[in-house]
Amino acid sequence: MHDRGGWSSDAPIDRSEHTLADWELLTDALVGALGRQGVMNVDELRRGIESMPPDEYERASYYERWLYSAETILTEKGLIAPGELDARLAG
């Protein structure tokens, strides 16, 4: 899913740009800070992204994939409990 080099595509490349939203900068910075603290590294980040269900991977935006991975890896490491983030968002 992530390994795109061998695919075939003639889709045009969309060159419209968007300014990074605050939450995108935040997600980037969270992952960077977790790396500097030795909590999770870039290989884990990528592995977490690659573990996304294929349809979600296709649909998600760039930083949605980062966020998915950070949650996955942090949950795996026991730093957040499964469902903890959802509970907070619901409350």
Binding site: L26, A29, A33, R36, Q37, Y63, I80
Partner: peptide
């Protein structure tokens, strides 16, 4: 979700808010 994750990690002492601000 991103904001909630930051809050949670700061509360748990995994990250300091300053570390995140510095990254931004």
């Amino acid at each position: 979700r991103a904001h909630a994750l930051e809050e949670l990690l700061v509360e748990k002492g995994v990250l300091r808010r300053e570390d995140v601000r510095e990254g931004i």
